[in-house]
């Protein structure tokens, strides 16, 4: 019997087309960013006349001009202010959200389901809804034009997202660990500090990173409460370059904007893996 070898149907390779499409999409998405970075090295006159994002020469004068700003306050102050607010917000969130999450996850108290639902409900409440009453409160307290409105609330577990993240994480920790700790001589506080908190580390890292990024990138809240240039943050500092009368110094602004991206970029670079860990692993094995 003769068997005729069937010609193998070879699938045409479409991979290169897929990749070409994806690369084109990526370039399209990245173009504004690349253009901004390129423009930060161009002389003022070239910025809007030359659409090529690659500058002809590397000119750092925009950076020097931008950093010192020319008003007596430099970006050194803005960065320090930004980092101070971020640090305060991070400490506040770590402290208050972990405590609130522990209570929701492990302690039985009256109206817990209702309170938990309310807490989650605040996730759906846009900031703009509460901005006026909140401003009135802080104004009455005399806290406007200070960092307090941006830091103090974080000590009262206002970020429902982090509480929810930690609640889910704590629920994944076997309850026997806490019971063992209680038999071993811990009270509630010690159980929380010595057993739960160390095991919560991935969620705490996630909280730290997100709090930093969100606080650092926040413009509206900082614009609302900070009026004095000495209290300005990086986000507000960038606005200084735009002049309503049309005398905007674009080159300096692009230079500072490029620099302002660095902290977030670095954080993403180093903690990318931990970010996913915190969200994906809500428990312990073994």
């Amino acid at each position: 019997m003769v068997t005729t070898a069937r010609p193998r149907t070879k699938k045409p390779n479409y991979h290169w087309m897929l990749h070409a499409g994806l690369i084109a999409g990526a370039v399209l998405m990245l173009y504004p960013l690349l253009w901004m970075i390129g423009s930060s090295f161009k002389p003022e006159g070239q910025i809007f006349s030359d659409l090529n994002p690659i500058p002809q020469s590397l000119d750092f004068s925009n950076y020097i001009k931008g950093w010192t700003l020319g008003t007596g306050v430099s970006f050194t102050t803005f960065y320090l202010n930004s980092f101070m607010i971020c640090a305060g917000a991070i400490v506040g969130n770590l402290f208050s959200c972990s405590l609130a999450a522990y209570a929701f996850a492990r302690i039985n108290f009256k109206f817990k389901p209702v309170l938990f639902a309310l807490m989650l409900g605040t996730l759906m409440l846009p900031f703009h809804v509460i901005v006026v009453p909140q401003y009135i409160i802080f104004n009455t307290l005399g806290w406007t034009n200070s960092f307090l409105p941006l830091i103090v609330p974080k000590f009262f577990a206002v970020d429902a997202f982090f509480i929810f993240l930690m609640v889910q994480f704590i629920r994944g920790i076997p309850v026997e660990l806490e019971q063992a700790a209680m038999v071993d001589g811990c009270n509630r506080g010690q159980t929380f500090l010595l057993i739960i908190l160390p095991l919560l580390t991935p969620a705490l890292v996630t909280t730290t990173i997100f709090t930093f990024i969100w606080t650092y990138n926040d413009f509206f809240g900082q614009l609302l409460y900070l009026n004095n240039e000495r209290k300005y943050t990086v986000a507000l500092g960038l606005r200084q370059f735009l002049d309503a009368s049309g005398q905007s110094s674009w080159g300096a602004m692009f230079a500072m904007t490029t620099l302002s991206l660095l902290p977030v970029f670095v954080i993403f670079l180093f903690f990318q893996k931990r970010l996913v860990d915190g969200i994906a692993t809500t428990g312990l094995k073994g």
């Binding site: 019971q179 038999v183 001589g185 811990c186 073994g286």
Partner: peptide, 17 residues
């Protein structure tokens, strides 16, 4: 529990990871 002077071994051992 801490004042009862007891020690307990759990089914899943409950070792602190």
């Amino acid at each position: 529990p801490k004042d009862r002077d007891i020690a307990m071994v759990f089914q899943n051992y409950a070792l602190y990871p």
